[in-house]
Nucleic acid binder design. Structure first.
Length: 224
DNA sequence: TGTTGATCATGC
DNA sequence: GCATGATCAACA
């Protein structure tokens, strides 16, 4: 990626310590030390903040469908804060497996693997702030409660069933209590392999699982 | 103003 | 194309 990549953290304590060291600092400052150029805006660099913090904290997963800190089983999520210091966007979790869900269970799903343990790092994102001036907040190391885990599983199973049945027209962002499914594509014209209601191989818009903004607000509000 | 649907960058 | 990282922007 870029020069000065951080070492892989050995344990949770070390990772959390590093994350706390970033709290209160600006993105411009952190980027400068890491040898990253700070973009003027994120319109053409939407993943920049997440990539910067992964780099600085020593994440290992790259673009594989596993948690960022594979050895620790921890997923890193940066979450944009509005002017009231609350999450202002939903959080992408993973791509929806449109063509390979036959027999897939919650326990072996990418969504569960990633949400079992998450290091949330809030970052100011109000548009009035220059990207370089936006500050990193205090990290929150989180695992879902039993209740939340059960609801996430229900949501996931509900979505997966719709896809397995080929009922893609009925699959939209209003389904799901905490977890929703939305487009995840480069354009409206993108296609990925799937099956229609008759089980015939077909093609449709690629989609992803996202956590609703209200859910992450609750997580960060309760913990920090 | 909050949500839903659309879109941007990068690596393999 | 599919995985990662997300935010943008239109509309109710």
């Amino acid at each position: 990626m870029k020069p000065g990549k951080a070492e892989i953290p050995c344990d949770e304590r070390e990772l959390l310590g590093r994350a706390f060291n970033l709290a209160g600092r600006s993105l411009g400052e952190i980027a400068g030390e890491a040898g990253y150029a700070t973009p003027v805006d994120l319109k053409h660099a939407k993943g920049w903040v997440g990539e910067l913090l992964e780099h600085v904290l020593g994440a290992t997963a790259g673009s594989r469908p596993v948690p960022d800190f594979e050895n620790l089983g921890i997923e890193l999520k940066t979450v944009p804060l509005n002017a009231r210091q609350q999450p202002q966007e939903s959080t992408f979790v993973s791509t929806v497996p449109m063509a390979s869900i036959i027999g897939l269970s919650w326990l072996e799903s990418t969504v569960k693997a990633k949400l079992d343990r998450v290091l949330w790092i809030p970052v100011e994102a109000a548009h009035v702030l220059q990207v370089a001036d936006r500050r990193v907040g205090a990290p929150v190391l989180w695992s879902p409660s039993r209740e939340d885990a059960a609801i996430l599983q229900e949501d996931w199973e509900e979505h997966i069933e719709m896809i397995a049945l080929g009922r893609l027209e009925e699959l939209d962002a209003r389904m799901g209590t905490y977890l929703q499914v939305r487009p995840k594509a480069f354009s409206r014209e993108d296609l990925t392999a799937t099956f229609d209601a008759e089980g015939v191989p077909s093609a449709s818009l690629p989609r992803g699982f996202y956590l609703r903004t209200l859910f992450t607000r609750r997580i960060l509000g309760a913990a920090g």
